[in-house]
Nucleic acid binder design. Structure first.
Length: 895
DNA sequence: TTTTGAACTTAGCACCGCTTAG
DNA sequence: CTAAGCGGTGCTAAGTTCAAAA
């Protein structure tokens, strides 16, 4: 651990971010210390023009950002003195960094008009290539982008999305034709049944399943072909050496496995399916009114709510004991929306509800709790029965028919109504999420497929047949106007294919990454502001795996990513450190202090000059421009590919680096998890510390101490046998024991005694039971008493030995035996310590996110083969079904 | 252009059922 | 056998990306 800063600034690997530690704070601050230094190594004196363009200050900011930031507990650290750069612009910048051409600009707040004038100067000044960009004005008007998506209810029925040009059949055929001589056809809908070998399936391109495959399978090009061969070979091998058997068996269970990965996947798969049949979506059951004795109170009086408003009240009541109920925004939004419902469905007993504070939802809450308890208390048979019923009603929704093959559907259950649970400081959190009806839902389904009947009264909003998209149903959620979709499950071929394409794209980046890095490294010194900023942003995206960072609207939580970073989110610390502190996706805090390239350091300093805290750091960069540029570096490259690439390549490297010669299974597993964890830290995948964490740490600490105690006793006993051992270093008291205070020992021995006694009593009782059962009579109580007395005596003895270096063991042993035990104890202590550290370090790191989304599963699969680890140890069942395409790689496969 | 829309991936958390320690 | 603790899953929010609309 530790590695706070960046021990490894090796150029080509992501900086290990210091774990998401909180505190740290080693900000040296002080006023711009060594500027000279920074300047120094700058061979190109091109600074001057940069700041210039920089000077315009934003100004247009909606004040809210500012306020908001202030609140956001995040940036406490970076108070005034740490940020010498940002705060008082003119003062420093003008003096410290002198830039001839720019003086005017920097010292004087520049108006638009001036800017234009300046621009000219600037351009001239630094060499020929100055371009428009460097001058351009309105830096940062933050687009008051307000997405007023709203009530999706509008009429605008569904025109078959106007997405990418919808390629249609003709197109399909086309691609078919040209790119394959032969194999495609055969490859197409090959259903591999258990024993079905290649040879046989070779020719029976089953027309049964609509020949569709052709359309989309068929990858492209070189790569695909060789790859396919490889896979095939592999399969044969497996069969040969017996693994085949296992596989065959598995497949038997699944009936047919569609091995789409044996077929070439086209990168351009605009057409997603040829035929599609499904049963639509499953609506939640209607609201059931509460028993008449359960009523909320208003101002102490019971309120008789009609179902509609009772339901909403219930949504809130259920959350009474959660943090949501402590959140003012949440309460406000809920109450406002609830009042709207109340207007149309007022209490039947004429209570006027106007004050949130007077509402008492407790009775409802308690009723829910009771219900929960009741459910929990049901016999397991009843539970099973219930579960079975549910499964039956849902059965038809769980799968669909895609190109004639059965595929699992993902989220076929329509989200029940409730209160919107926005994360972080979401302005809309707590708002009422309406019940979705068929009228809200657009279905997407094959032309010839029967149109499903909704399981609640109503008619679909629309039914379309767009085979260029993968969703089965969609609706617009009322709170934020976001679109929701029903997609296939993660294990489906469609998802699998795009997953595989994703990782292949990331692997492709390997071939270009050196070049791209060279390019942006030299762009770090570009005279064009926009390029310089872009290069700097790319540096962060690459080295730190930051997200792209789109602009966000006013009615969303204030979170940022790379492009949307504001000055307040980064603090420079001489000589070459930067501290990031901002809220990212899901309002998860990203805190990282890292050493950065001196040029980047210098750039950031420049970018921050003359800006306010709430001004955009990269005012000339946005995600679409960035991605456009990335795409020009490599086809299909976007910011997120870097995350995938860096996560996977790092993972591969870490695994390769681990020395696992004759390691135990457990050790291998640990090594794997460690690599996984480092990646998770890189990607800042956090989780909230488990509620029981402190407690379980405490337990482990105690256990550790107890182990130390045991070893101490053993040592003492050894000395009792022969003092010569006392001289040997390995039996000397080590630090481990130094914290065994007498107090603690006393308590511990007390505990041990209590346990012993309890055990004795239990055994006594049990023995008696047995005796009675066998027709005998129970032992006398006296026996137990004796036993207990014995124990007491034992512990008296221990007590007398406290603080002394003597010990009597219960059973006398030889020195060898004791030594052996000591060694064992030492080992145990070590393991326990490791376990503790592991647990503690991992308490806020979520491993699963990277496993599911960022780590190429083939890395794991091949690693398992190399190290003979059953993959089930590392991949859960869902992961295994998600990655069937990855499990067959051979062991020399590398990301 | 810039903004909005659409579609798809990525994310953390609550809850549940299965182990596992006791 | 029971309670606790844990990983796995379902849920749905919150991102990214690309392309059409304004």
């Amino acid at each position: 651990m530790s590695g706070d800063t960046t021990s490894n600034s090796d150029d080509d690997r992501p900086l290990a971010s210091s774990s998401p530690v909180k505190g740290v704070n080693g900000h040296l601050n002080g006023k711009n210390p060594d500027y000279s230094d920074v300047e120094m190594d700058d061979d190109d004196g091109d600074e001057d023009d940069i700041p210039l363009s920089q000077t315009r200050r934003a100004s247009v900011l909606p004040p809210r950002r500012y306020l908001k930031r202030k609140k956001a507990a995040v940036s406490e650290s970076s108070s005034d003195d740490d940020t010498p750069l940002a705060s008082s612009p003119p003062k420093q910048s003008s003096t410290a960094v002198r830039m001839p051409g720019a003086v005017v600009a920097t010292t004087v707040p520049v108006s638009v008009a001036q800017r234009n004038g300046l621009k000219k100067q600037v351009a001239v000044k630094e060499g020929p290539s100055d371009d428009e960009e460097s001058i351009q004005t309105p830096v940062k008007k933050k687009p008051p982008r307000k997405r007023v998506k709203n009530e999706g209810s509008g009429a605008g029925a569904s025109k078959p999305s106007r997405k990418r040009k919808v390629k249609v059949e003709s197109d399909v055929e086309l691609s078919d034709d040209d790119d394959d001589d032969k194999p495609i056809a055969k490859a197409s809908a090959k259903k591999v049944k258990n024993e079905d070998t290649e040879s046989s399936s070779e020719d029976d391109k089953p027309l049964a399943t609509p020949s569709p495959q052709k359309a989309k399978d068929g990858f492209g090009e070189d790569l695909s072909k060789s790859k396919k061969k490889a896979t095939k070979k592999k399969v044969e091998e497996d069969k040969a050496n017996g693994k085949g058997k296992r596989k065959a068996k598995k497949e038997e269970e699944d009936e047919e496995v569609y091995r789409w990965w044996d077929i070439n996947i086209k990168e351009d798969n605009t057409v997603k399916w040829i035929t599609l049949e499904h049963s639509g979506v499953c609506f939640p059951p209607p609201y059931e009114v509460l028993p008449s004795n359960v009523k909320m109170k208003y101002d102490g009086k019971e309120v008789d709510l009609p179902p509609a408003s009772e339901e909403v009240a219930g949504f809130y009541a259920a959350l009474l004991e959660t943090d949501y109920a402590q959140n003012n925004t949440f309460n406000k939004n809920f109450f406002e929306d609830w009042k709207k419902v109340l207007e149309n469905h007022p209490p039947r007993n004429d209570v006027q509800i106007t004050s949130f504070a007077k509402c008492d939802f407790r009775p409802m809450f308690e009723h829910f709790e009771a219900e929960k308890a009741r459910k929990k208390a049901m016999s397991s048979a009843e539970k099973k029965e219930l579960k079975k019923k549910k499964e039956e009603t849902e059965a038809k929704y769980t799968a669909c028919l895609l190109n004639g093959r059965k595929e699992k559907v993902g989220n076929f259950r329509i989200e029940p109504p409730g209160l919107f649970k926005g994360r972080g400081e979401h302005p809309r959190t707590g708002a009422l999420k309406f019940r979705i009806r068929p009228e809200d839902i657009t279905l997407n389904i094959g032309k010839d497929a029967p149109i499903p009947i909704p399981n609640m009264p109503g008619k679909w909003k629309a039914v379309q047949h767009d085979n260029t998209v993968t969703w089965l149903a969609t609706w617009t959620e009322n709170v934020n106007g976001n679109h929701k979709y029903v997609f296939l499950a993660a294990g489906s071929s469609l998802k699998g294919q795009s997953d595989m394409i994703k990782f292949e794209k990331a692997r492709e980046l390997k071939k270009h990454v050196d070049r791209i890095r060279n390019n942006y490294t030299s762009d770090l010194k570009s005279k064009v502001m926009a390029e310089r900023q872009r290069a700097t942003a790319m540096y962060f995206i690459d080295k730190l795996a930051l997200r792209a960072g789109n602009e966000k609207g006013e009615d969303e939580a204030d979170t940022v990513g790379c492009c949307s970073l504001r000055c307040e989110h980064v603090t420079l610390e001489p000589p070459h450190f930067i501290i990031f502190d901002f809220l990212g996706k899901d309002s998860i805090r990203y805190y990282n202090r890292v050493q950065i390239d001196p040029q980047v350091y210098k750039n950031i300093k420049i970018f921050k000059e003359n800006k306010d805290d709430d001004d955009s750091l990269f005012d000339r960069v946005n995600t679409s421009g960035l991605n456009k540029h990335l795409n020009s570096e490599m086809k299909g490259l976007t910011a997120k590919v870097f995350r995938t690439y860096n996560a996977s390549i790092t993972f591969q490297r870490l695994l390769d680096e681990a020395n696992l010669e004759n390691a135990s299974l457990q050790e291998k597993h640990n090594a794997y998890n460690k690599a996984n964890r480092l990646v998770a830290i890189l990607c800042n995948h956090q989780r909230s510390v488990p509620k029981t964490h402190d407690q379980s740490m405490e337990k482990m600490r105690y256990k550790l101490k107890a182990l130390r105690y045991d070893r101490m006793k053993l040592r003492h006993a050894l000395f009792g046998l022969d003092l010569k051992y006392k001289k040997q270093a390995k039996f000397r008291e080590d630090d481990d024991e130094s914290d065994l205070e007498l107090d603690w020992i006393a308590t511990h021995e007390e505990n041990l005694k209590a346990k012993e006694i309890e055990k004795a009593e239990k055994r006594f009782a049990k023995d008696n039971e047995k005796l009675v059962e066998d027709g005998g009579k129970p032992q006398k109580d006296l026996i137990l008493k004796h036993k207990i007395e014995n124990i007491e005596r034992e512990f008296k003895q221990l007590e007398s030995e406290r603080g002394k270096e003597t010990a009597t063991l219960k059973t006398s042993k030889t020195a060898e035996k004791i030594i052996e035990q000591i060694e064992k104890a030492t080992e145990k202590i070590k393991t326990c310590k490791l376990q503790m550290m592991d647990r503690d370090e991992g308490k806020e790191v979520a491993l699963s996110t990277s496993k599911i989304n960022y780590l190429d599963p083939r890395i794991t699969a091949s690693w398992c083969k190399i190290h003979d680890v059953p993959i089930e140890k590392l991949f859960s069942k869902t992961l295994l079904t998600k990655f069937p395409w990855a499990l067959e790689v051979d062991e020399d496969w590398k990301f």
